[in-house]
Amino acid sequence: MTNDVAMNVDVDLDIIAEQVWSAFLNSGEDEAIFAADDKGSHADLAASVAMVGAYEGHLVVSCSHKASRDVASVLFAMEADEVSQDDIGDALGELANVLGGNVKSVLPSPSQLSLPRVSATEHERWPGTVEVCRTVVSWRGEPFVVSLLSGGHAVHKTQEVPA
């Protein structure tokens, strides 16, 4: 099944992002700005989960290398210079998984959520999709763009680690 790309969905990405950052990334007001300005910032990595079923699309979170390292550092409770590429892939993928799971809960059901996929943005495309909504979280001065895409063929099956 493929969505009508004009499908109206009622998803408050701002609230979902705030809940996730607050619970898992120790985000007090001094560290995070929610619904931040989208200044077209550069993203190196994208983590995504696909939704297949009554809703078809992707939840994507993208950020810089530094931001992804900081996420892994906090989630693994390690120093930033100690985290490995595997750690970064796991942490950023889980961030997308938690965001995607919460988004899926307010989308048409039933649908299935894929395992997360993490890759360099220069290698990542979501053909046939349109962006339904997005929010930007500025955390520790680094922007995280969280996007909900509709349409396309969701075929994520395996988790990949950034090169």
């Binding site: 607050s22 898992f24 938690v98 965001l99 799971g101 809960s105």
Partner: peptide, 26 residues
Amino acid sequence: TSECSDEMKAKAEAGGALFLISKPFT
């Protein structure tokens, strides 16, 4: 789990689970 729909709660309960804790949690 990050997914906590009514459908999943019903499946979990029918399968014999105690409850679901949704991510993010505290």
